[in-house]
Write a protein that binds this DNA or RNA. Structure first.
Lengths: 117, 117
DNA sequence: TACCATGCCTAATTTTCTTAGGTATAACTT
DNA sequence: AAGTTATACCTAAGAAAATTAGGCATGGTA
C-alpha cells in the first residue's frame, strides 16, 4: 500500500486474510465456496469474494501455517475444509484489532472536524 | 482488490486518493511535502505517506481533473500547490462516504457478535 | 564541512486483486 | 432428454497500487 505506518504491512495490503481468518475462527471449519456464500449473506450482497482471490489466499494462509485443511467427499464431489491453527487464531485477533485501529486513524483524517468540536 | 462489491472499485483499491482529496478540500491549497507532514502530524506518526506513492497519485488526480496545480518559487526552490476542482470536491465527499460504508460492512464481518446481542 | 530538512521527481519490483478462463458433479427446469 | 444453474475446486495473464530505492537540488544547522 501507499502507507508506511506503525500498523503491520500485512494488514494494510488488504483485508482478505483478516476476513478469512476471522470467519474461520468464528465458525470452526469452512470450505472455500462456503466462505464466499457466508460473506455474501452476512453483507447482504454488498461484498462478494472472487474465487480468483480467495483460493490463492487460502493456499498462502496454509503455506504460512495459519490454517490447516482436510478434504471430505460429498458423493463424488470434494470439499476442502479449512480451520485456523493456534497461530492462525492469534493472527486473526491481532489483524482484526490492527484493522480497527487503522480505520479509526483514517476516519480521523477524513473527519478532522470531529476533533474540533 | 479481492472484492467485487457494490462499492466503487476505485475506493476499494486504496484510500490515498480519498485522503488527499479530503485534505485538500479541508485545507485549501497544499503542496506535496506539506501533505506528507500534515498526515504525519494528524496521525501522530501512525501513518506516513511515501513520496513514491503520493506524487504519482497527485499527478493522476490532476490528469483526471480532480485537482489543479500551480507552482510558487520560494527563493530558488519550487513548491507545487494543489487544490481541488469542483468535481474534485464532489469526489472527495462521495469517496469519503463510500469508505465509511465499506468500513462499516467490514467491521460487521469482523465482529458478528455485535449483531447477536 | 557534513548532515539533515525541505521539495520535487521517476523506475523497477512486489503484492494484490480482477478477469477470464478450465474442470467436474449435482440439481433443477423445460 | 437437454439445458441451465448451483456447487466446488483450481490456475494464469494482466492491471493497479504501493514499496523500495534511488536521483536532483536548495537551505539551514552543528
Amino acid at each position: 500500500m501507499y502507507i508506511c505506518s506503525m500498523y503491520s504491512k500485512e494488514l494494510l495490503k488488504g483485508t482478505l486474510k483478516t476476513i478469512v481468518l476471522k470467519l474461520l475462527t468464528e465458525n470452526g471449519q469452512m470450505y472455500g465456496y462456503e466462505i464466499t456464500q457466508k460473506v455474501k449473506e452476512l453483507t447482504e450482497g454488498k461484498i462478494v469474494l472472487t474465487e480468483g482471490a480467495l483460493y490463492p489466499t487460502l493456499h498462502k494462509l496454509e503455506a504460512a501455517g495459519l490454517v490447516a485443511s482436510h478434504t471430505q467427499s460429498i458423493g463424488k464431489r470434494i470439499r476442502k475444509y479449512y480451520s485456523v491453527t493456534s497461530s492462525g487464531a492469534n493472527q486473526a485477533s491481532s489483524l482484526a484489532n490492527e484493522f480497527v485501529e487503522f480505520v479509526q486513524t483514517i476516519l480521523f483524517l477524513l473527519n478532522p472536524q470531529l476533533s474540533k468540536k
